[in-house]
Simulated scan of single mutants.
Amino acid sequence: MNQELRLETASTLPLVPEKGFYRLVDFPTGFLFYTEIEDLEKVVSAISLVTDSLVDGNMAHNMFFTRGCSPGDSDVCARRGVRIVVWPRMSCFGAKDESAFNVALCELAGHLPFKNRHDFEHSTEKDVMAVIQKYLLPNEEFLQLEHQLTARLQK
């Protein structure tokens, strides 16, 4: 896309920065990995450990890759690295309303494909965040998961 996504410069909190592992701040709560070519193997291993842990725990999640700024370098940035975001979320089953605003990885990343004119013209940021929040883990559960994953990555 020619449009920059806010995710490309979103603020982060370092969790295990030596392995490229951060938490997104002021964005739908998720984990962010950042890499440039020289750290690729180390970060890919960390991503595998996290996603394997989520799969082993039967936890639904979405993953999104985009170019982006190094964490802490969002003021002036060439977006020369890659940001990989993993959003642990609530499982949802059954058919979805195909005409409604549904939450998946594009919506979590800030790209909002509305499927009907009414939603496009009348949805506010507050409306969208309310829908997205229903699919994310409750804060306590997310913080517990963050603690577990951080401990595993520090071994």
Results as ranks from 00 to 15, higher is better:
86 V>I: 15
83 R>S: 02
83 R>A: 02
41 E>I: 01
130 A>H: 09
97 D>I: 04
79 R>S: 07
80 R>A: 08
126 K>T: 02
56 D>I: 14
88 P>S: 08
86 V>E: 02
47 I>R: 06
136 L>I: 15
40 L>E: 00
101 F>T: 02
45 S>H: 09
114 F>R: 01
65 F>P: 00
45 S>T: 01
128 V>G: 07
132 I>M: 02
138 P>A: 05
110 G>W: 08
82 V>Y: 10
82 V>E: 01
90 M>T: 14
116 N>E: 04
134 K>G: 03
117 R>A: 15
131 V>F: 06
52 D>E: 12
50 V>K: 03
105 L>C: 07
99 S>I: 09
128 V>W: 13
120 F>C: 09
41 E>T: 08
91 S>F: 06
60 A>N: 01
95 A>M: 14
82 V>W: 12
96 K>A: 11
50 V>T: 03
64 F>P: 05
47 I>N: 03
121 E>K: 12
64 F>Y: 14
99 S>G: 00
141 E>C: 07
103 V>P: 00
114 F>K: 00
49 L>C: 06
48 S>G: 14
127 D>H: 14
58 N>L: 07
81 G>C: 07
87 W>Y: 13
121 E>N: 14
93 F>S: 03
44 V>N: 12
124 T>N: 13
51 T>V: 06
126 K>L: 02
66 T>V: 04
105 L>K: 14
81 G>V: 13
82 V>S: 15
99 S>M: 12
98 E>L: 13
145 L>F: 09
66 T>W: 03
49 L>N: 09
57 G>Y: 11
92 C>Q: 10
95 A>H: 15
53 S>Q: 02
72 G>F: 09
125 E>R: 11
93 F>N: 01
85 V>T: 07
136 L>Y: 07
79 R>Q: 14
132 I>T: 04
73 D>E: 07
123 S>E: 00
139 N>R: 05
96 K>G: 06
142 F>I: 02
61 H>E: 00
142 F>Q: 00
129 M>F: 13
128 V>I: 15
77 C>I: 07
91 S>N: 06
131 V>W: 09
36 E>Y: 04
64 F>D: 00
